[in-house]
Amino acid sequence: MKNIIILDLDGVLITTPTWKADEIDFDDYSKFNKKCVENFNILTENLDCELWISSTRRMNKTLKQFREIFSNRNIEQEIKGFLPVTDYQTPRIKEIESFLENKMIENYIILDDDSSLHNLKEESKKYWVQTNLLVGFSLEKVEEAKQIIKKFWED
């Protein structure tokens, strides 16, 4: 399988505090942080990878709808798919680990602010770029992701 980016949305591209309602964009979906989108495009420019969405928001929209939302926000990387949902109670860490094991993925990055991912298996934790809910995918995190790519994808 190709190189994979596993992407959460809240805390990565959407930086609305949890105590506030999302600001809605022209297409009736939540606004993305424009700087975070720019940074994501910097990371994915000329990067041979597939984008898989892990956000719980994937449960409320179709893949086609999300592709349109991403296009409307000028995200250049097309979404390949969603991490499979086993049920609505399954923690994200289990969904990610199951996805990685079932697809036998070796080269990946996880972009997510979820602190429960500290409990990822050690071999997976080194591929995780933890963002901050209110800051999102900053230039610092772009560099962190690039270091992971350089170290693990280009061996």
Score class of each variant (00 low, 15 high):
Arg67Gly: 10
Asp48Arg: 07
Ala21Glu: 12
Thr18Ser: 11
Leu63Val: 14
Glu45Phe: 12
Phe66Glu: 08
Cys49Asp: 03
Asn39Asp: 02
Tyr29Val: 05
Leu100Pro: 00
Pro91Met: 03
Thr56Cys: 03
Lys121Ile: 11
Ile4Met: 01
Cys49Arg: 02
Gln77Arg: 05
Asp27Glu: 08
Lys126Ile: 14
Ile149Gln: 14
Ser115Arg: 14
Leu117Thr: 05
Trp19Val: 10
Ala21Arg: 11
Asn3Leu: 09
Ile42Gln: 05
Trp52His: 08
Thr56Gly: 09
Asn107Gly: 10
Phe99Lys: 04
Lys80Met: 07
Lys34Thr: 13
Thr15Arg: 05
Asp10His: 05
Asn72Pro: 13
Glu50Phe: 05
Leu51Thr: 04
Glu76Cys: 10
Leu100Arg: 00
Ile75Gly: 00
Tyr127Ser: 00
Lys80Asp: 08
Glu76Ala: 10
Ile4Gln: 03
Thr18Gly: 14
Tyr29Lys: 11
Gln77Met: 13
Lys103Glu: 09
Asp25Asn: 15
Leu120Ser: 04
Leu63Asn: 06
Val142Glu: 02
Leu134Thr: 13
Leu7Pro: 04
Pro17Ile: 10
Thr18Val: 13
Gln147Met: 12
Ser124Asp: 15
Lys126Val: 12
Asn107Cys: 12
Asn74Phe: 13
Phe32Trp: 10
Asp22Cys: 06
Leu117Ser: 06
Gln77Pro: 01
Ile79Gln: 05
Trp128Met: 01
Lys64Cys: 04
Ile75Lys: 00
Glu144Trp: 03
Trp52Gly: 00
Ser71Phe: 15
Ile24Glu: 09
Lys125Ile: 09
Tyr88Phe: 15
Ala145Ser: 13
Cys49Pro: 01
Lys94Leu: 10
Asp87Arg: 10
Val142Asp: 08
Tyr88Lys: 11
Ser30Phe: 10
Val129Glu: 02
Asp25Ile: 09
Ile149Ala: 06
Arg67Asn: 15
Asp48Gln: 11
Ser30Glu: 13
Thr86Ala: 02
Trp128Glu: 00
Phe66Tyr: 14
Ile96Lys: 01
Thr16Leu: 09
Ile110Glu: 00
Asp155Ala: 10
Lys35Cys: 04
Val135Arg: 06
Ser98Arg: 13
Ser55His: 04
Glu97Asn: 08
Asp8Gly: 12
Ser98Tyr: 06
Gly136Met: 03
Ile79Phe: 04
Glu154Thr: 11
Lys121Gln: 11
Asp48Pro: 06
Lys150Met: 06
Lys35Ile: 14
Pro84Thr: 08
Lys31Leu: 09
Ser116Lys: 04
Leu43Glu: 01
Lys151Ile: 07
Trp128Pro: 00
Leu9Ile: 15
Glu154Ile: 12
Asp22Gly: 07
Val129Asp: 00
Ala145Leu: 01
Lys146Gly: 02
Met1Asn: 13
Glu143Cys: 08
Asp114Ile: 01
Lys80Val: 05
Lys121His: 05
Leu139Met: 13
Lys64Val: 06
Lys141Leu: 07
Leu7Ala: 09
Ile75Tyr: 00
Gly136Arg: 02
Thr56His: 13
Thr15Gly: 04
Ile75Ala: 01
Lys103Phe: 08
Ser124Thr: 08
Ile5Gln: 05
Glu143Met: 12
Asp155Gly: 11
Leu7Thr: 05
Glu78Lys: 14
Glu68Ser: 07
